[in-house]
Each structure stands twice: as structure tokens, then as C-alpha cells.
Design a binder for these strands. Structure first.
Length: 195
DNA sequence: CGGGGGATTACCT
DNA sequence: GGTAATCCCCCGA
């Protein structure tokens, strides 16, 4: 497998385009317990301008500072007292934009994902949501600001990607503002979406 | 220093 | 489909 080039060729494009281009590629995570990987099947774009739902919309704080770093870094935050959400920082450094990874299709390390998620859960329930996939991939705030070109959390290229698969857009999930904006992107007919 | 709220999930009816 | 769980961050006083 080839590392996804997290450079200007890939992330030089704007965040809305990056959210679509990430679909189909692999997310990989290595720990002492082993490797897990999955295909990114659902993303959401969060923009710096005219987007109150974006954490960066009211300026830089300690919590959201990773969003203002260079593209290709991880932005991980803790929510609802229980869960984490994982984002890929996009756009020029200092702008404060990111792509939320909302769901992946499990590929490698399903046994490990089951262990982390609770053995009784169904395969399609392992990683079909931003909090779920962070559990299955053991992603927490220790990976905030992590460079996604490096282990233990990185992206890999897939020949099946946005250039040759069907993608559709919808309003974002759990976002009360900007419901008219179609900033959620999914692989059509994929069975591992959050809904 | 206290209160409100959140890019969610699991479990209930 | 409705809601409790749960805690860190941020803002205002």
C-alpha cells in the first residue's frame, strides 16, 4: 500500500473538495494490540467562513487549535463526556478548516475492533459513526495534532476512490445551523454509513 | 468560579 | 423516536 500524499496536491484543494477526495482511501491505526484499517465512506466539511457549526468559527482556542495547523494533521476532540471525534485538518494553515471522518468500512483487524467496541455488536455497527470509529480505532486526544503521514495513525491510497466511485452529498448530521448546506459526503449504497 | 452546551451513542418504549 | 449519560471546554461575571 502507498501512503496517501498529505501534501499540496491532495490538500491544496479547498476543504469541500478534500472531503470528497478522502472517500475511498484507507485509514490505518497501529497499536501494541495490532493493526486496524478501514475505507473512509462518510465525511463532513467544516469551513472557516460563514459556518457557525465549525469549531473554529469563533476564533482559535485551546480546544480547536489543531484546526489552525497545517493540512494533514489530526484534530481530535472529546464530546458528550464519552466520545471522541476525528478530523483531518485541511486548507491553508491558520484558516481553521477540517474534514470530520464520520464512518469507515472495516477492512483489517475486525477482531480487535470487536474487542474495543464490545463483542456483541454487529459488524456494521463497529465504525458507522464518528464516536464509534474512534473507539474501534483507539483514537483519543493523545493523537490530536498528529501528522497523518506517520504511524501510528495514517492514510493510505486506494485505487478505488472519488475518481471512480459514486458520491452523493447531504446536509450534515447533528448540525442545527446551515441545514441548507450539503457538506456531508458519502459513498453511494455503502453499507457502513452512520445512517 | 459556575453554568451551559456539544460535529454522539445506547437503550428504552 | 425519545432521552439519559457524562465531562471538558469556553464564556461571562
Amino acid at each position: 500500500m502507498k501512503a496517501l500524499p498529505v501534501n499540496k496536491d491532495f490538500f491544496g484543494c479547498d476543504t469541500v473538495e478534500a472531503a470528497q477526495k478522502l472517500l475511498g482511501h484507507y485509514l490505518c491505526r497501529e497499536t501494541d494490540e495490532g493493526l486496524v484499517s478501514g475505507i473512509i465512506v462518510e465525511t463532513e466539511a467544516y469551513l472557516s467562513e460563514n459556518d457557525p457549526a465549525c469549531h473554529a468559527s469563533r476564533g482559535r482556542t485551546k480546544r480547536n487549535s489543531a484546526m489552525f495547523g497545517p493540512a494533514g494533521m489530526a484534530y481530535v476532540y472529546f464530546i458528550y463526556g464519552s466520545y471522541h471525534c476525528f478530523n483531518v485538518v485541511t486548507g491553508p494553515a491558520g484558516k481553521g478548516e477540517a474534514v470530520l471522518i464520520r464512518a469507515v468500512q472495516p477492512v483489517e483487524g475486525l477482531d480487535l475492533m470487536f474487542r474495543r467496541r464490545g463483542n456483541k455488536c454487529a459488524v456494521k455497527n463497529l465504525t458507522s459513526g464518528p464516536g464509534k470509529l474512534c473507539q474501534a480505532f483507539a483514537i483519543d486526544e493523545s493523537l490530536n495534532n498528529h501528522d497523518l503521514q506517520r504511524k501510528p495513525l495514517y492514510l493510505e491510497e486506494n485505487s478505488m476512490n472519488s475518481e471512480n466511485i459514486a458520491i452523493k452529498s447531504t446536509p450534515r448530521i447533528g448540525v442545527s445551523s446551515a441545514k441548507n448546506k450539503y457538506l456531508r459526503f458519502v459513498i453511494v449504497d455503502n453499507h457502513y454509513l452512520s445512517r
